[in-house]
């Protein structure tokens, strides 16, 4: 009984007090926050400070990061192939990426910093892999590359790597706004048989361990994709990671580049504005 009361205190009174003090919330129940357009999302707050989170992260991954730097990132093998693909003429119009974007597509330096972004023709959010396929189809008369295929990942990785070290600066102004909000709602939506949301793990419980996995804070989630993952033994995209977590939640997995995943990618990448692009990443 005593235990239950202490939990109630922790879960009800504390956040309520924090909300009163910070005054960030208007009307509505204590546990819900409203987005600009009035969509309700569950109000979740981190269970620990960011400094404490970083301490735990370093303690957990410390050795691994050093080891990683020593052994090198297997994903880097894709970079050369990506560069070759950028110069390779394909499709009915006799063009390559380089035809429009300069030798080795070097004019695309910095392009990755503003993706995902609103696209008027699409009436939705354009991601980097989708942009590459759109260029191939519309400008080059070439077939789109299958998502998660070697060539798609190599090209995305090479062109994004031209922006390495540059800060992410994604816009959610104007027409992008509703898509950003939909992405936020999806990120906070409880779903699947286990009734989790992305946010309950990566906002509230970041820094805790789910079995032996330290759950990461979403601060640096969008800056290192495509990324080599030891568990996959392969390089994959951010959306592959989304689908992996959705599977663990026993929830429906929307297809690659579906509207829901693109909106979520916009939401998450905007959260990471200011983080420096570092492609390819490597994780456990």
């Amino acid at each position: 009984m005593y235990k239950k009361i202490s939990i109630l205190l922790k879960t009800l009174v504390l956040p309520a007090a924090v909300m009163l003090v910070t005054g960030t919330l208007g009307v509505g129940t204590w546990a819900q926050a409203a987005t600009q357009s009035g969509n309700k999302i569950e109000k979740l707050t981190p269970s620990m400070s960011y400094a404490e989170y970083q301490k735990r992260y370093e303690k957990y991954y410390g050795d691994f990061t050093a080891q990683m730097a020593e052994e090198g990132n297997p994903a880097e093998f894709l970079l050369d192939d990506g560069k070759d693909l950028a110069n390779k003429v394909v499709g009915s119009k006799g063009k390559s990426c380089a035809s429009c974007h300069g030798k080795d597509a070097l004019q695309l330096k910095g392009a990755a910093t503003t993706f995902p972004k609103y696209n008027a023709e699409l009436k939705g959010i354009m991601t980097f892999p989708l942009q590459i396929n759109t260029c191939r189809e519309k400008q080059m008369g070439a077939k789109p590359l299958k998502y998660e295929s070697y060539d798609q990942l190599a090209l995305t990785m090479y062109i994004k790597s031209l922006s390495n070290g540059m800060p992410i600066k994604v816009s959610i102004d104007g027409p992008a706004r509703p898509f950003y909000e939909k992405g936020q709602v999806a990120y906070y939506k409880r779903q699947g048989q286990l009734n989790f949301s992305c946010a309950i793990c990566h906002v509230q419980y970041a820094g805790y361990k789910a079995r032996s996995n330290l759950i990461s804070n979403n601060k640096h989630h969008a800056d290192h994709w495509p990324c080599y993952r030891l568990k996959w033994g392969k390089t994959g995209s951010l959306q592959r990671r989304f689908r992996g977590c959705l599977k663990n939640m026993r929830a429906k997995k929307p297809p690659f580049q579906s509207e829901e995943l693109r909106n979520m990618e916009l939401y998450l990448t905007y959260l990471n504005n200011g983080d420096l692009i570092q492609v390819p990443g490597m994780r456990m």
């Binding site: 239950k4 939990i7 109630l8 879960t11 009800l12 546990a31 569950e42 979740l44 048989q193 286990l194 009734n195 989790f196 309950i200 793990c201 509230q204 419980y205």
Partner: peptide, 16 residues
């Protein structure tokens, strides 16, 4: 029932 914002999965309700 005890914490509407719990992370703990509803093992009975969701037939886990």
């Amino acid at each position: 029932e005890f914490n509407p914002h719990t992370i703990m999965p509803p093992f009975g309700t969701n037939k886990i």
